[in-house]
């Protein structure tokens, strides 16, 4: 694991809105290794969502280099980026972004359709992914028949089903109540402990505390990049085991 999963070199992103240019990112350089759990924080307008979109190959930087698994992806065209999103990156959005008329199973199958996976294998993998997030009994429910937390778990299953090298989450708990939010965060920690690489954007400190490393952005620059020696999930797990020990 010598090459980092992600290498950013002096990444900038400029939006031209008519008369003036808006600098969303002003030279970001950083590296993310496989099996890291990174939280990106910052006030609104700091560029954290823009950065996540570029990391997720949903957008291209204006200048600078983005090496994903050692390959420069900063100048790829639309379809090449689509292919990387399809095979390598699982996205979880704040608004869940599910197809409203499709069942949970169908929603999770969606990326596999564009990967050309045959129907039978698609169903099996989607079912396994839904079972992995604890929704094995909700396969044929539509989004409007599920709670917010369940919808977000469908979205996570959709991210997992492609067996991604990178899971990106944009304010994944933003639309959820505290209990559901914690439930989702515990699921992310669990995925991390299973060896997944996770980058998540949040503006809530207690959410960021689940991560192992916290990058703070301000005005399109990295303000700080610090490790979090005691990720929350580990503590929770410790408490849980302590409780079990105490009860026995």
């Amino acid at each position: 694991m010598d090459t980092p999963l992600i290498v950013l070199e002096k990444l900038t992103k400029v939006y031209s809105t008519g008369a003036e240019d808006v600098y969303a990112l002003r030279g970001i350089s950083l590296q993310i290794r496989a099996n890291e759990f990174v939280a990106i924080m910052g006030p609104s307008g700091s560029g954290k969502s823009t950065l996540l979109h570029i990391l997720g190959c949903l957008d291209s930087p204006t200048s600078g280099r983005y090496l994903f698994r050692g390959r420069d992806v900063s100048q790829l065209n639309d379809d090449e980026l689509a292919r990387i999103r399809n095979r390598e990156i699982g996205f979880v959005f704040q608004a869940f972004n599910l197809l409203p008329r499709a069942t949970a199973l169908k929603n999770v199958e969606l990326p596999l359709i564009y990967a050309g996976v045959p129907a039978e294998e698609r169903r099996q993998r989607a079912r396994a992914a839904l079972e992995a997030v604890g929704l094995g009994d909700r396969l044929s429910h539509r989004p409007n028949e599920l709670s917010g937390g369940q919808r977000q778990r469908v979205a996570i299953a959709r991210a997992l089903v492609i067996r991604p090298s990178l899971i990106l989450a944009d304010e994944p708990t933003g639309n959820l109540d505290t209990a559901s939010g914690q439930e989702i965060m515990r699921l992310f920690s669990e995925l991390w402990s299973q060896g997944n690489t996770i980058v998540l954007v949040t503006h809530e400190e207690y959410i960021a505390r689940y991560a192992q490393r916290i990058i703070r952005l301000r005005d399109g620059r990295v303000e700080s990049d610090t490790p979090n020696p005691e990720p929350l999930s580990v503590l929770v797990t410790a408490e849980d085991s302590h409780d079990i020990a105490g009860n026995s």
Binding site: D79, A82, R85, L99, L110, Y114
Partner: peptide
Amino acid sequence: YEIGLRKAVGARRRS
């Protein structure tokens, strides 16, 4: 919105 979602999960232009 649906087009955006399909593209986000990897649909190419021709799809």
